[in-house]
Design a protein around this nucleic acid. Sequence first.
DNA 1: TGAACTTTGGCAACAGTGTTGCTTAAGTAT
DNA 2: ATACTTAAGCAACACTGTTGCCAAAGTTCA
Lengths: 377, 377
Amino acid sequence: MTIGIAGANLPALRSHNDAVVLDLMRTSSAIDEGGFSRVEIAARTGLTPQAVSKILGRLREEGVVEEAGRGASTGGKPRTLMRLVRGARYAVGVHIDRDELTVLLADLADPPGMPTVARTVAFNLGAHPEAALARVIEEARATMLGVEGLVLGVGVACPGPLDHKAGVLHRVTHHAEWDGFPLRDVLAQRLGLPVVLDKDTNAAVLAVLGDVRSANCAYLHLGTGLGAGLVLDGTLYRGSRSGAGEFGHQVVQLDGPVCACGSRGCLEALCLAALGARDVVGAAHLLGIGAANLLRLLDIDRVVLGGRAVLAEPERYVREVGAVLSERLQDPARDTVPVTLVPGGARAVADGAAELVLAPATRTSLPGRVGSSPPTA
Amino acid sequence: MTIGIAGANLPALRSHNDAVVLDLMRTSSAIDEGGFSRVEIAARTGLTPQAVSKILGRLREEGVVEEAGRGASTGGKPRTLMRLVRGARYAVGVHIDRDELTVLLADLADPPGMPTVARTVAFNLGAHPEAALARVIEEARATMLGVEGLVLGVGVACPGPLDHKAGVLHRVTHHAEWDGFPLRDVLAQRLGLPVVLDKDTNAAVLAVLGDVRSANCAYLHLGTGLGAGLVLDGTLYRGSRSGAGEFGHQVVQLDGPVCACGSRGCLEALCLAALGARDVVGAAHLLGIGAANLLRLLDIDRVVLGGRAVLAEPERYVREVGAVLSERLQDPARDTVPVTLVPGGARAVADGAAELVLAPATRTSLPGRVGSSPPTA
DNA sequence: TGAACTTTGGCAACAGTGTTGCTTAAGTAT
DNA sequence: ATACTTAAGCAACACTGTTGCCAAAGTTCA
């Protein structure tokens, strides 16, 4: 049993460095057009050029990277450029929503959130688990058609609450059989692939993170509810019981109306009430106040908005939230925190679901902990 | 320039594993009374027993660990126990407050927060920097007397705001010369030792973390102001500009009184108003509501209270905050979040300041967790 | 009492990592 | 042409944790 911080060995060191190089190539833009040179990779990772050569040699043998011509000379021999091979490795992203199912295939060679074929079909999460499950598996299999052997895993994003570590759903719907349903392991077994399960807001913030690298970033989702996905110190933050991100149930009005959660004056309740009165500006203003609270507490450097309510009138929300933040957080030393829309709109969650698989593979994690592996790997 | 996640090499691997073992021995309690066996360390770190032998051999040569007898047999040869050597390495913890200066010497062999000689003297942070600085140096030198060569570094905790990365103070006091003062580098040069600078609340939460290992922990400080120190995923969270922890300026009453920060109805303003009216229960209740907001957002598993106001009536605060949390966060799946007092009381910040030095030394730092499976088919 | 078993932990050989020193390749500058 | 500069690979290397083996030091049981 490994408790606390784990020791590392040579294979771990190698995987880590491989992942560091892959991550750089996938999420950063190269200086030279068309690819990364060994010299550039070395400078940006702290690895020696020779080490980079060896790592790229390994990755080339695996078919993940390839040569991509030469760069301009900087006074001597021009650099040999390398790039990720398209079609070498994939991940499947699945967004299970209450009334929709979106499935897409993401190429490891593409930067996160790259346009791909995404298929959205009607869906009923309230249905019997077995029927819904069959639907998910059918769509996932169809998406993987022809590249089955190259798929690293399947990322699944659902409305919460759920348990990321155990891969189990909690009260997603009123259907009793869904409560405690081991969705991750069941899917892993039936698909024969590693599966990662997470909340939709967490997936969305990963999609954002791929778009713009930011160490501390919050995704605020205003739809049927109000939730958040948090990236802190460059990593998705889930909290002790996968429960982080309950942004909507912060009290902002001590004597406000009683909320279903038991508190009074929850931000979500006030926001939804404003929306019910078609007061978009009011809702956006409230969202801004909640965002200000969050920024004060966590010193975030980027806020991203999404969710059906936001996407219905995106400019208004961005403007109003930005206004509240710059009014309330004026600090000469502190740059204004940019407020943007979630890239890819409604598809962001499925993009991020694929990132649940790709980001650990190119960043860091423990062997076999990337999700639940199917029996006999 | 190393951007993003850094690559690692063999020396990094070694110091990581050394640190993993030191951290375990310093912060965990051993199964066998009196020390840690190689077998136990191996099991808890994931390292092989032979690797642990080599690591302990290195640490023994450096004089940091020593043999400590044998444990009971578990059916065969009894285990040889090892322990940290007292008096081998130290760190100095400095707590600079507005009217007090506390300095102590922490032994690497002691668990964090262990009673040590701590010296508290009157101090005036509002004075001229040079005079204050001389006072700090004088006290630090006196504390290190006789063990100078064994001190790993000096941790300095101040009231915020400040810049941890740059080691620079910001507006700690009205004295203009303090603003932007490079306290860390000046102290490092004059003392000839590495210096780490951080906010007092951050130091306090480190002291807590040493006492009880908790992955996600919040320290709430109610004194002249209201702030928080956050440990998230086992690491001190500072935010993008060392600004995280502004817990007091969350809006909890949209139409509340205007606060100096520009918002209305800040928790801090309401709390201090309650205290001004000698309404301790009211202040504690408000603190509880703020804590509930924080727990909802971050899914923390431990709340620790401190600060002069809390320490004046500790039981009341613990009881009232605990009551609010269990009332508002009742969730059958979620255990009750324990609310406790900061260990060591007023000395906690100085203890934590020493931890600013010791924790990185024993918890370094292969970037992120290591060992992912690279995308091999 | 003694033989068999179990567990610990060191030694030696090993596999595999990134590093270093040097050589070769392929440009630019003079 | 010639000299210089930069890139990238090869070979030897230093050092990591791993593996196989064995001695030491207990317990268990006939």
